[in-house]
């Protein structure tokens, strides 16, 4: 089974678990299994159209799935998937835009941060 790391604000929906074992040949199936296990998570991860909310970032190992094959990114038995929310907000104004969610990918320390957290979460 793959392991999926849950961020702090969502752990109240996983009985406090920071890591959840999930089945799936790819990220989409792993997320489906997560929702099967913890249905109350769904509205906080998916919008009404069944699409992942824009603040949901998923990494397999050190790589954002946006840079891989998206939700079709394959997973092996020992895959480590990390769910990271983008934290964003602001005042209502003329700019009804989206948010850059990957401004630092591969550039300013995300990979080292992921390695740090993986060492804590998935000790060898």
């Amino acid at each position: 089974m793959a392991t999926l790391k849950i961020p702090t604000p969502l752990r109240s929906y996983t009985n406090g678990q920071a890591e959840v074992a999930v089945n799936g040949d790819n990220v989409a199936q792993a997320m489906e299994h997560l929702i099967e296990k913890f249905p109350t998570l769904k509205p906080h991860l998916y919008n009404g159209d069944g699409q992942l909310r824009p603040f949901v970032n998923l990494f397999v190992g050190e790589n954002n799935i946006k840079d891989l094959q998206g939700l079709e990114t394959p997973l092996d038995e020992n895959a480590r998937v990390i769910l990271i929310p983008s934290i964003a907000g602001g005042t209502d104004g003329v700019q009804a835009d989206g948010v850059q969610t990957s401004v630092c990918i591969g550039g300013c320390g995300l990979k080292s941060a992921l390695r740090d957290i993986e060492e804590r979460c998935f000790p060898v």
Partner: peptide, 18 residues
Amino acid sequence: ARHNRYLIAPEDYLKAEL
């Protein structure tokens, strides 16, 4: 966009959890 938007990057989120 910084006058009316903020964004905490994923790396900063991870560092904060650590």
